[in-house]
Amino acid sequence: MDGTNAALQQRPPLIAPVALVTVVPDVKDNRPVNLDIGSMRLPITAWASITHRASGVFLFAAMAFLIWALDMSLRSPESFAALQDILTSPVARLILLVIMAALIYHSLAGVRHLVMDFGIGESLEGGTFSARLVIVLSIVLTLLAGLWIW
């Protein structure tokens, strides 16, 4: 740096020397951060992402129900019959359908990520299209699952 300054002093600078020695502040630590999601209009891709997260959190809790059901189904012929009986009630079927909807949505949104990891559909248009596709396909498959459960 001393050498540069010496050179600048020997002949008229083309630009003001101050421009060469301006100290760039460390902006990393004081950059504004805005994660106040409520203040933004969320695009479809953001809804797809939030729903993927929410369905994942829900599925972790729902796993208690599924593991309980697996236990009932394998323990004995009596518990298998009891489980079948429980699953005939509309409330149990509704719970099952909500879990199915979460599984279907979370799976499709996961596949969307995998496809993007291979570099397909990473553009703004591609992301918007696949977010819509995942939502529509989930609704269709959930309706089919509902028909199958009832």
């Binding site: 951060v33 994660l35 997260r53 994942g56 959190v57 972790f60 796993m63």
Partner: peptide
């Protein structure tokens, strides 16, 4: 899968910054 996914959610919303 659950550990990584829930880690991602928790480290976004339950933070020292917030």
């Amino acid at each position: 899968h659950a550990w990584i996914g829930l880690w991602a959610v928790l480290t976004d919303y339950l933070t020292e910054r917030l």
